[in-house]
Computed example of a mutant assay.
Amino acid sequence: MTGPINEFEKRLMESAEATETLLASLLSGTCLPGEISRPATLLAAMRHGTLNGGKRLRPFLVLESAAMLGGDPQAAARIGAALECVHCYSLIHDDLPAMDDDDMRRGQPTVHRAFDEASAILAGDSLLTYAFDIIAAPETMLPDRQKTELVLALARASGLGGMAGGQALDLAAEKAAPDEAGIVTLQAMKTGALLRFACEAGAIAAGRGPEDRQRLRDFGEKIGLAFQLADDLLDITADAATMGKATGKDAARGKGTLVALYGAAWAEERLAVLAQEASDLISGYGDKAVILQAAAHFIADRKS
């Protein structure tokens, strides 16, 4: 397993660097056709909330899912950048005083602290809108039908029945802790929906049919569960310096998590099971699946 993990780490690092470069280009001061102006302060707030490092895991999953299924890497890169815009918008808004009220993100001040609340709200709004622009733009060289499928899938993953709805459930959980089924639903929406989309998007970009799309959706759901479970475990075991953000906040706010319900030892065992289940789902793709299988184990074993 040493070889695949080393290759995985190399690919993840290269993908993160390429995504950062692409996002920097997309968030330049140059107007696109149809735009009137790009206000300097708003653009700076968007860049602050987006160009700040990170593993860029979601774009990586798009790229590797597409690569496994024979998709075009340049189209996959733009889809990954669009997804990262949605993810960064969600972080900017989640950090606001009306939401999670956080001061630090990825080791630097959150957007509303570095700028102000209005700029943070508008930066998030603009990133969310821009994501669909990136997919629909002629530079994303895919047939219109695939673009439509991507826009629909991303909208469903991001909105009322996905990430935004999950954030609403998360806020409600501060007042009344959900039961186990409620926690699973909340996490599948708030965190899992975008990870699921990342994997399915690769199949869509590659022009694959329902069977491959469903298999990649199922894979994404497994790693989405693992990602949030690992996050909840880290919230009680890692320090803020390692995480680049405040830790221990879920317990302080009385939010229910599966780790709180069943303990750290159970969580570690469950993470190992989820990683293996995810890996088994794509084993039929043979050697082409090795990097994604390594990603599943990385998500389950991550320390930050």
Rank of each mutant, 00 (worst) to 15 (best):
M1W: 05
T2M: 08
P4L: 03
I5T: 15
I5Y: 12
N6L: 15
N6V: 13
E7W: 00
F8I: 04
K10N: 11
M13P: 00
M13L: 14
A16V: 04
A16W: 02
L22H: 11
L23I: 11
L27V: 07
S28N: 01
C31F: 01
L32T: 14
L32V: 12
S37I: 13
R38F: 08
T41Q: 14
L42Q: 10
M46V: 12
T50G: 06
T50A: 05
N52G: 15
G53Y: 00
G54F: 00
L57G: 01
R58M: 01
L61H: 01
V62Q: 00
E64H: 13
S65T: 07
S65G: 09
L69S: 04
G70A: 04
G71K: 03
G71H: 02
Q74G: 02
A75K: 03
C85E: 01
H87I: 05
I92P: 11
I92C: 11
I92G: 09
D95C: 12
L96W: 02
D100V: 12
D101W: 04
R105I: 11
G107H: 06
P109H: 10
P109A: 11
T110M: 08
V111Y: 05
V111Q: 06
D116G: 10
E117K: 05
A120H: 04
A123S: 11
G124E: 07
G124H: 11
L128V: 05
L128Q: 15
I135W: 03
A136I: 05
A136P: 04
A136F: 01
M141F: 07
R145E: 08
R145N: 05
Q146S: 00
T148H: 12
E149Q: 14
L150Q: 02
L150K: 04
A153M: 10
R156K: 15
A157C: 02
L160G: 14
L160A: 15
G162N: 01
M163D: 02
M163F: 05
A164N: 01
G165Q: 06
L171K: 03
A173H: 06
G182K: 06
G192W: 10
L194F: 00
L195P: 00
L195M: 05
L195Q: 02
R196T: 15
R196E: 15
C199T: 06
E200F: 09
E200Q: 15
G202K: 09
G202A: 08
A205E: 05
A206N: 07
R215E: 06
R215V: 10
L216E: 06
R217D: 07
R217E: 12
F219A: 02
E221T: 09
K222P: 00
K222I: 07
G224Y: 08
L234A: 02
I236D: 03
D239E: 03
A246H: 09
T247H: 02
G248Y: 09
G248T: 11
D250T: 08
D250V: 10
D250P: 07
A252Y: 01
R253F: 00
G256M: 12
L258M: 14
A260V: 08
L261C: 14
L261A: 15
L261H: 13
Y262G: 06
A264G: 09
A265H: 12
A267L: 12
L271H: 13
A272M: 07
V273W: 05
L274I: 13
Q276H: 13
E277A: 10
S279G: 13
L281K: 11
I282M: 08
S283E: 15
G286H: 03
K288D: 14
A289S: 15
H297L: 01
I299E: 09
D301E: 15
S304T: 12
